[in-house]
Amino acid sequence: MTADILNEAEITTRVRSVIRRHARLPIDVDELADDADLFQAGMTSHASVSVMLALEEEFDLEFPDSMLTRRMFESIASITSAVGTVTEAGA
């Protein structure tokens, strides 16, 4: 992994952009706080898979199997933290 270490604000912005394009939410992602539950906001399990695959492309990374859980993808904050962990580990 050759990705630069990204700062959290930058990751959050790009995560929000991926969610806007792939989570198929019935509301605008800007209405959601970083810690809002995306599944309660209307993201389906299948949409969460699309988000996962899009994040891997966006950040050029591969989440380890242990991180492929519903909990890891339940909020913008938890996704940002997961992306941060993986990019840092691989940098």
């Binding site: 969460s48 996962m52 989440f63 492929l68 859980t69 519903r70 909990r71």
Partner: peptide
């Protein structure tokens, strides 16, 4: 596949 792990996790948790 890997996306299946996510779906399985969702299914179990709910």
């Amino acid at each position: 596949g890997r996306s299946g792990r996510m779906l399985a996790s969702s299914q179990l948790q709910q």
